[in-house]
Design a protein around this nucleic acid. Structure first.
Lengths: 229, 229
DNA sequence: CGGCATCCGGGAAGATACTG
DNA sequence: CAGTATCTTCCCGGATGCCG
């Protein structure tokens, strides 16, 4: 009995790494399963519970609820209630939460060198957008300038490329040079899989509106790093 | 019975995120508890099993063994046997494993803004060294040039600061301008906690050899980012 | 549909003891 | 010192049911 008490109290609170290293604390904040992917899904704007679930194939409602509670307690996520008549509850990153983007980008870029990475699996829109910002090649994109639209079903994004940097945000598609109308996985096949745009258009999985030459050029700007061994 | 089979086979292999996103694959590689901290411990050179344990307070031998096996299978860590008479087994990062450094650095830097981060906990030497590379302030260090030694018991590191960049590696301390003889946690108190060097010297926890003014200047180059709220 | 509570089974992590 | 064996605890995920 006393032994039980002692061992129970031995854990300061939950399981902690007891390490002043920032990385160790980072793992206490984001180290649980799914946590980083939830932050990824929120990186380009607030989402509802069901939208989060849709971008995280395999997560249970149960686990998603727990993670959101934890992330909210850590002040990485905040929940907000939209004003009536919508009055839906949404989840969004705090200012500090948005600053986690480079962590996820570095992790993603590093992992694509893994011998076991399978780029043909399905992909959420947030993943696709983040990968464009991450994987763009400075040298190849040096002299490319343009405004791009991306339409994935209901979701739309706008991107601006100039001086080797890609900015992308969620928003209405207006005054762009060229628009990709497709789904994230198909766009990945074009950009990372080297599948010709014409072939994807022929099979009805993708449509280009606007400057076609610019679209053709765009999909060549994102080389995958060499695999390790 | 049949239901059991179906649910058992439902898991393709282990628990996978089924997501082409590089970050998701990164979590399959480094997402298990302790994995990133093990990589951190190996970031400045190979270590033996016991040395790893010493830098990871709280890890069980059991778990460390499993993680090393997993990291080896993923080609992030390789194990090597030193030639006789040492013939000890050591663990070291692969070339690709060393490339994970920026992930850990960004994670650590981001997490120090957490309201819950406690920088007074103990710290391993690898954490301390990595934090110096991570947290150095470009502007403040612009015009500081020097070579630094760090002696933590048996372990020694050499650093070179020039043009706002800090390079540090494990090695013998020779031809440096100033040397810190202390332990990682005390150095953190000086660099991040603002504790005066004189006070730490008075209590016998730290000793400076060489250019004292340079040492005093050095400890002002690593401001912590502002907390979030 | 969105979100939370509860129960259950499996597996990963921790404590301890033990072996070469 | 470098792990292995065993046992326990706790986290994760699936299923179900409730409630707005």
């Amino acid at each position: 009995m006393k032994l039980e008490n002692i061992t129970t109290m031995g854990k300061r609170e939950k399981r902690s790494y007891d390490d002043a290293c920032g990385a160790a604390h980072g793992l206490e904040l984001l180290g649980e399963r799914w946590a980083i992917l939830i932050v990824r899904e929120l990186m380009y704007g607030p989402k509802r519970f069901g939208e989060l679930r849709a971008g995280l194939p395999g997560i249970s409602a149960n686990t998603l609820t727990q993670r959101l509670e934890g992330l909210e307690a850590s002040r990485i996520v905040q929940r907000r209630k939209l004003p009536p008549p919508a009055s839906a509850q949404i989840y969004e990153l705090t200012e500090w939460g948005y600053e986690a983007e480079p962590i996820i980008q570095h992790l993603g870029k590093w992992a694509t060198r893994s011998p076991d990475h399978d780029p043909t699996l399905p992909l959420s829109s947030a993943s696709m957008i983040m990968s464009l910002k991450t994987m763009i090649d400075r040298r190849r994109s040096e002299r490319v300038v343009g405004r791009f639209g991306f339409r994935f079903g209901e979701e739309t994004f706008v991107g601006r490329l100039a001086h080797s940097a890609m900015q992308i945000w969620r928003g209405e598609i207006e005054t762009v040079d060229t628009t990709f109308i497709t789904d994230p996985t198909t766009l990945a096949a074009a950009v990372y899989g080297g599948v010709p745009l014409a072939e994807l258009e022929a099979s009805g999985k993708l449509r280009i509106e606007g400057d076609r030459a610019l679209a053709e050029r765009f999909v060549t700007l994102f080389p995958l790093p060499a695999k390790f061994v």
